[in-house]
Design a protein around this nucleic acid. Structure first.
Lengths: 214, 214, 214, 214
DNA sequence: TATGAATGAGAGTTCATTCAT
DNA sequence: CATGAATGAACTCTCATTCAT
């Protein structure tokens, strides 16, 4: 076998190329699944979008379900990493929370297709694909727990009131998701991240006019 | 011929029975669509659930799309009516808002299957079913506007701060939806309505500990 | 049982009424089959056209095939009777042939729907409906033989040349059918019977210009 | 890699093979449609006859209607070409007419299945398949006009009498079709072309015995 | 007798998946 | 490795037919 210069580690190159093609397919699948819902998105249309023939998809993914799950896993993992990364640099719980909100808005903005898919979750895989499915659930859970831990840290510092932290997390998340949903629905041009302050203001101080406490 | 009391108006009875069967089918469709997403729910499984043969469904609904839309239209209309009805009795905007939140939680609680369907919206009907589809969108819109108008009324009374009312509405709605989602995910037994106070508290006063303003 | 005056023979009246309804259904079926081909014509549309409910058809006809065959049998028998009746009054073979042609054109004209059905014959009943089907074939045959016998009679009188009589019969029939087909295709208003002279002229003398024989 | 001679242009070969399979399906469809009328001929039976699975048909034809129309278009075009080709070599209008008759008989003889389909025309495509349908009608029309123009040319040379040329064309065509129909009905072994002289004789000189004119 | 709601077999059609090339 | 033709299971939908009323 002849080695061209850049293939000094041919097996690694093979591996790298394979990963690249896999990523291409994932990207194609993401945009197609975003536009058409699982059953309306055909393997062929995904293959087309990726520049492959239909059969080729099966060299990279077990079946359509696996491809779908892989899209979710890949993206949701990345999202979690992105949010966690941003949170890490904050000095203080409330600032971290603000970072988490901002990061999530930004991610939604940069991955609108993914958000579309995410908000149209299917009830559950009937088959034995449960394995991967659990991985997705655990990502969700980690996300929730990240918010919870930030909230609890803030509560310890008395930056936040002693309300049920999980409920607070869901409330906060709900606001973010609904505002995102609405913005995408209207194909809004304005970056979602601009809503960070609104959300933090509402979350921290509420919409009530009168002064609280006394 | 002897008329039993209830058959005094046979045509009305026919009509009534037909409506009853149509309702049975709608109910069956609701539960099947809730469990299986549009394309995974077969007409046959719906028919089975309703106690009919597959062909019978088509005596009551044009096609599968029409049945799906009918489920949504029927329920979403009812939900809107329910919320509006509850709001109407409130004397004052903030109380009305609380009623709206409580009503929505209650509705979700009593129609969990419907909520599952609702939160898994399909991108859009390809065909000419647009007519009914618009009706659904307009119900959504009316719901949003109901919340907006209550919020604005409260703002006029200075019960709420002057923040963007649509954003506030979406924020409030987002909290409700996310908390509902989570409760259903865990098959929680506790009535959702118990979360009304939590939501109103968070929405009105925020989670922040420190006194606002001064 | 109480006899009203006109029901002095109630069983006969019953019978008569039944026949009337049967005839109504046949007439409705004829027009529907003319417009829509066997499989596109639904029992329900025929029943509607006859002013009955779908199920009622089955009180008068075994099944859809039987109804279809009955339409053909009834009409084709009537057509044959009509042509035979007209032929009978002719004094002389050639005149009889002219009457046969005229009669057929007239019948086509008055029963256009029937002609449409006839010219769209189905290959053959797969099932055991062969019985009735043979009756139809035998009507055809009788028609052909009528023409043949007239032709042969004319040949004996030396009014016609000694050509194969069956072939002559088919040739003559072919002209009639094709001209009818074309007239109906164009929804021509002019009575088909006007073409009798043209057909007889062509059949007897041919289209050739030069004098034959010598 | 070794190229066998016939694979020197692999794309062309692909194309050629595809055309071959398409032709196989058309042939299978022709024989099935000939035996069973459009609605009684199932896609599966056609696929079986072609040696394919049902789904495969759809890789070559849009739907069943398209397949049906394709059979007609392909054959009717070929028939017209065949007749026109034969006519072209005739030196003189009457000879050309004789060629047209002979050619048509021959074509019917070699494509009996097609003739069966043709003589059982459906009223008309309901859908938007009108495009191809018109193409068929225009082939018919061209055929009629071919006969008309030959007849008119003969009339100008005084080889034929001045009778309505369209009517003459339909009369001639009617004879041909009816004789064909009858021969196929009896599964006659004798070539139809043998009837050419009979038809031309009848058409030119008529069946009348007496001398015409004087 | 007439009805028409219900049936269910059967059709056309799609598309994930396989496999010879 | 990639291909894409072929498959065939599964689905939606139609409609002749039955039968309780």
């Amino acid at each position: 076998m002849i080695h061209s210069p850049e293939s000094s580690h041919p097996l690694q190159r093979r591996e790298r190329e394979r990963e690249q093609r896999r990523a291409d397919i994932l990207a194609a699948a993401e945009s197609v699944f975003a536009a058409h819902d699982f059953h309306e998105a055909s393997i062929e249309s995904i293959a087309d979008a990726a520049g492959f023939a239909a059969g080729t998809i099966y060299l990279y993914f077990e079946d359509k379900d696996a491809l779908y799950v892989a899209v979710l896993v890949e993206k949701i993992t990345r999202m979690l990493g992105f949010v966690e990364g941003r949170v890490r640099h904050a000095k203080e719980p409330l600032a971290a929370l603000r970072e988490a909100v901002a990061a999530q808005f930004e991610f939604h903005d940069q991955h609108r297709a993914f958000f579309e898919i995410l908000s149209r979750q299917r009830p559950g895989m009937s088959n034995g694909k449960g394995r991967e499915w659990k991985r997705i659930r655990s990502c969700y859970e980690r996300h929730t727990e990240l918010l919870c831990s930030l909230i609890e840290a803030a509560q310890q510092r008395r930056s936040l009131r002693k309300m049920d932290s999980r409920h607070l997390a869901f409330g906060l998340l709900g606001m973010i998701l609904q505002l995102t949903r609405e913005a995408l629905r209207q194909h809004a041009e304005e970056p979602l991240a601009n809503q960070t302050e609104f959300v933090m203001d509402l979350f921290l101080h509420g919409a009530g006019h009168e002064r609280r406490a006394a």
